[in-house]
């Protein structure tokens, strides 16, 4: 499933941001790395294509949540790495707890008979 092509539902709009924040919370990473890490974390459910990944990264960078830097990748190639800023960390916490709240509520709602 890819977010860009199938656009599962409006509910999942915020999820990409949350997943990127989570991926970067584990350590600085470049675009392809973030994409792969999300794939791992979601056991292959989300495969983020560049068409959605890069717009999201640049939007978050403009919002001040991510800070870019150029660095050497594992294969000795120059790549743009992203790092969570303090604001980004705070945003991650907010979105995470928000997600938990929604998830609990939705699950509860679906269980009612």
């Amino acid at each position: 499933m890819t977010i860009r092509e199938t656009e599962p539902s409006k509910l999942l709009q915020g999820t990409l941001d949350l997943l990127i924040l989570k991926a970067l919370a584990l350590g600085d990473m470049h675009g392809l790395g973030i994409s792969r890490r999300i794939e791992q974390m979601t056991h292959g459910t989300f495969r983020v294509k560049p068409g959605s990944l890069f717009p999201a990264l640049h939007r978050m960078e403009d919002a001040g949540w991510l800070a870019p830097r150029w660095g050497e990748s594992e294969a000795n190639r120059r790549a743009k790495y992203y790092r969570l800023t303090a604001a980004g960390r705070k945003q991650f916490q907010t979105e995470e707890s928000e997600w938990q709240r929604v998830a609990v509520a939705i699950t509860a709602a679906l269980r009612t008979t």
Partner: peptide
């Protein structure tokens, strides 16, 4: 910068 970033992405993907 955007151009560089995307080309780096493609290079990394190819390397993979």
């Amino acid at each position: 910068t955007l151009d560089d970033e995307l080309h780096a992405y493609v290079e990394l993907l190819a390397a993979e």
